[in-house]
């Protein structure tokens, strides 16, 4: 009974917001308030970087958006619709992990095509999609490789292609480049920027590297001790 009016209330307060909207989001682990009443909006096609030191709660915020952590307060909305009852796999928010988390027993092509398969693509359509994605990240022809034999940078490219291949409404990038060495990081940051721009996907990038945030994102917000500090243009 309480659900209907509150849903209306939700529509009233945020009906205008296109894209992602976090309202008053908190995540707690026992006594610890890892994410502390955070408000954040990401417009369609926009790439927002959340910049902060390790342990500031930025990864937890990302996991909360993905539905991997329960909220202690607040709401996560997409196009004004509350996602509280929407399971992670129905949100359409693909997450790219710091260490890739590729499926070690599947080939590169199967990893990249994982999301497309779930969307029902098969046969030549699937092959074409996988080839397009591999081309996008500069790994054409490596589809049959074992992902764990690839270098760290190549693994992260596969992880990026896999995230894009799910056809997400939003990509969540959790320190995607911090496991890589400096030179590779700079090159891959530029690639990431262009791939995200070309695909027109919204994204949240979590990082502790200021330069990386500047290169990849349209907008940078600072996070400290669970709170968003200030918004820089």
């Amino acid at each position: 009974m309480g659900g209907v009016p509150s849903r209306l209330a939700g529509a009233r307060t945020s009906g205008s917001g296109k894209g992602l909207r976090c309202e008053d989001v908190s995540v707690t682990f026992g006594e610890l308030r890892a994410v502390d009443h955070v408000d954040l909006a990401v417009a369609p096609g926009e790439v927002v970087a959340v910049l902060g030191p390790s342990g500031c709660g930025k990864s937890t915020l990302l996991r909360a958006v993905a539905g991997l952590e329960p909220l202690a307060s607040g709401r996560v909305l997409w196009h004004g619709e509350d996602l509280a009852g929407t399971a992670t796999h129905r949100r359409g928010f693909a997450m790219m992990f710091q260490d890739g988390q590729l499926f070690g027993h599947l080939s590169v092509a199967r990893n990249v095509g994982y999301g497309a398969r779930l969307r029902g693509l098969r046969g030549s359509a699937l092959d074409a999609e996988v080839a397009r994605l591999l081309d996008l990240v500069g790994l054409s022809g490596r589809g049959e490789d074992d992902p764990l034999t690839l270098s760290g940078g190549q693994q992260q490219r596969v992880a990026l292609a896999r995230s894009l291949g799910a056809g997400p409404r939003l990509i969540l990038l959790d320190e995607p480049l911090s496991a890589l060495d400096r030179e590779l990081r700079e090159r891959l940051a530029a690639d990431l920027r262009s791939v995200l721009a070309d695909s027109g996907t919204s994204a949240i990038l979590v990082t502790h590297d200021h330069g990386e945030a500047e290169v990849i994102a349209d907008r940078v917000v600072q996070m400290e001790a669970g709170r968003l500090a200030s918004t820089a243009p």
Partner: peptide, 20 residues
């Protein structure tokens, strides 16, 4: 996080189990 990765790519509980 293997299962979480599969979930964010759109895999439901059963599919996650089969994958991971």
């Amino acid at each position: 996080r293997q299962g979480e990765a599969a979930a964010t790519l759109g895999a439901g509980p059963l599919r996650r189990w089969v994958t991971v």
